[in-house]
């Protein structure tokens, strides 16, 4: 396993998703591989600052995924199935179900 932490947040409630993405970015700037997965709900449309934060996360080799096509279409996050996410989680040093469901 890499010497760097690999952390994946998972968001299941709309009110927690955008801020949870900020938490992922916060770890990326601390030299960790940080990912987020939006599960089972439609996110708000990202504003300019939030899109910029997503780009910063990607610049640091992080990513935001979603199981919902609508989020991929409106916010440009990466599509993922639950099975693919599960496999990805196996590579993580820390798995963080964020907020409430």
């Amino acid at each position: 396993m890499s010497e760097y932490k690999k952390v994946c947040f998972m968001y299941r409630h709309k009110d927690y998703t955008i801020d949870g993405m900020r938490s992922a970015l916060g770890l990326a700037v601390e030299n960790m591989y940080a990912y987020g997965a939006v599960l089972g709900h439609e996110m708000d449309t990202l504003n300019e600052d939030q899109q910029e934060a997503l780009e910063m996360l990607r610049d640091m080799e992080g990513e935001i995924y979603s199981t919902e096509t609508v989020n991929c279409e409106k916010n440009g996050v990466e599509s993922i199935t639950i099975e693919e996410l599960g496999e990805k989680l196996r590579e993580m040093t820390n798995i963080i179900p964020y907020g409430i469901k």
Partner: peptide, 15 residues
Amino acid sequence: RSAPDDTTKKLVEIV
């Protein structure tokens, strides 16, 4: 923290 639903169960099974 609550009874796991199908999504949680699936992820736990894989992890």
